[in-house]
């Protein structure tokens, strides 16, 4: 019977979430609250057990570290500098308030390091490769000779990339009377083409989201059927 608890809970919570069909109701709210609470609690436990305790508490209070510290061994410094620094920054972040500005040090450290890592990775991992990928040849020839399809594909990629970037250009030339004027004439049709590509991209994204949602829905429906069958089997006994 204990093995039915999980399926029963899953079945109940699934139905509670699907009850949103009739509108916002307490069952739906209960299910959402349980989901959020369980997720937060699980994440907190994992963070403590897999990160904070083994990477910060254990190195500081380990016998090896304490022994080196008491022996005034310089090795203790290398063992303590990382966990102690992290612990200090964490405490400063917890004490961050209007009256205590020391917490800003930890925040500044996190933001600075994160920005550096993210920017470096974005430039080398995304921006440069995408620029490289956009620089395609419009010659209808490849290694196998004339290839019109390659030409069209390359052209579509180049045109789509450039016009999409042009769509986000919002500057306009000022008129003689000083009021805002219209943008250059050649830019407007290009912006329209970019808008088309953007629309197509959004459509594809929406379709993919629909497929993903449908897959999830299908899995849940089948899961409900399986649980219901299991419950019926257990309740009714093997027939």
């Amino acid at each position: 019977m204990l093995d039915l608890i999980g399926p029963v809970l899953a079945f109940s919570l699934t139905l509670a979430v699907l009850s949103y069909l009739i509108g916002d109701n307490p069952l739906y709210r209960l299910a959402i609250h349980i989901f959020v609470g369980a997720t937060a609690g699980y994440a907190a436990i994992v963070a403590w057990s897999n990160v904070i305790y083994p990477l910060m508490v254990v190195p500081i209070f380990s016998t090896e570290t304490l022994g080196n510290l008491l022996a005034f061994n310089t090795l203790a410094l290398t063992q303590l500098i990382s966990p102690a620094g992290g612990l200090l920054l964490g405490l400063l972040l917890l004490l961050k308030s209007r009256s205590i500005a020391l917490g800003s040090v930890a925040t500044a450290f996190m933001v600075g390091v994160g920005a550096a890592i993210a920017i470096g990775g974005a430039v080398t991992g995304t921006l440069f490769p995408q620029i490289n990928a956009t620089s395609l040849s419009l010659l209808p020839f490849d290694a196998g000779g004339f290839n019109g399809v390659t030409l069209i594909e390359n052209l579509i990629i180049i045109v789509g990339t450039l016009t999409t970037l042009m769509y986000f250009y919002y500057s306009a030339r000022r008129n003689a009377d000083g009021l805002s004027g219209r943008m250059a004439g050649l830019l407007r049709p290009l912006k329209f083409v970019g808008e088309v590509f953007i629309g197509l991209t959004f459509g594809v994204l929406y379709a993919g989201a629909m497929v993903a949602s449908l897959a999830l829905f299908s899995e849940r429906m089948l899961a409900l059927i399986d649980i219901a069958s299991l419950l019926m089997t257990r309740l009714m006994g093997p027939s």
Binding site: P129, Q130, A133, T201, V204, G208
Partner: peptide, 24 residues
């Protein structure tokens, strides 16, 4: 990847058509 993330992840798969280069 999920079907919803695939359009944005595919450029990393088809990122390079240059000969000798490996995509991500």
């Amino acid at each position: 990847v999920s079907a919803g993330a695939e359009p944005l992840v595919r450029p990393y798969y088809e990122g390079s058509y240059h000969e000798g280069e490996q995509p991500a």
